[in-house]
């Protein structure tokens, strides 16, 4: 059930990318898809009632390894979130330049070439 909600999040983002006519709205929809993929990766690594992957001084390593969630997807998602921020800044910069040149965010009006 949780996986299907996560899939729904990705599909909503995809729908927004297809239907939207404003460039910024397409960027925002891509952001939602990004969030959905991150959520999926973390859900795959989740252990039921698992503890965070931080070693407690009181516990033994064997107990810890049997009860902690998967640290690898967390590290990769951490990387991906930061990269998403950089890509978002790049996309917004493109949208802002397009707005300055054409006076609109509407992709149907950004047609004519201006050398």
């Amino acid at each position: 059930m949780i996986y299907s909600l996560c899939l729904l999040l990705i599909l909503i983002g995809l729908y927004g990318v297809i239907v939207s006519r404003q460039t910024l709205k397409i960027v925002v929809s891509l952001l939602i898809m990004n969030h959905g993929v991150h959520l999926m990766l973390l859900l795959v690594g989740y252990r039921k009632n698992g503890s965070p992957p931080i070693v407690d001084p009181g516990t033994t390593i064997a107990d810890f390894a049997a009860g902690a969630v998967d640290p690898l997807p967390q590290a990769m998602v951490l990387t991906s979130i930061v990269i998403g921020l950089g890509v978002l800044a790049l996309m917004v910069a493109l949208c802002v330049r397009l707005y300055e040149r054409y006076g609109t965010f509407d992709v149907t009006e950004i047609r004519r070439l201006r050398g």
């Binding site: 978002l88 917004v92 949208c95």
Partner: peptide
């Protein structure tokens, strides 16, 4: 993410979300 036992990811998510919201609202 906090409920998924991923506190590091949650912290980074909050920080990144603040910055990206500032960028988007400024645009």
């Amino acid at each position: 993410y906090l409920f998924l036992s991923a506190p590091d990811v949650a912290i980074v998510q909050i920080g990144v979300e603040v910055v990206s919201l500032v960028i988007l609202i400024r645009a």
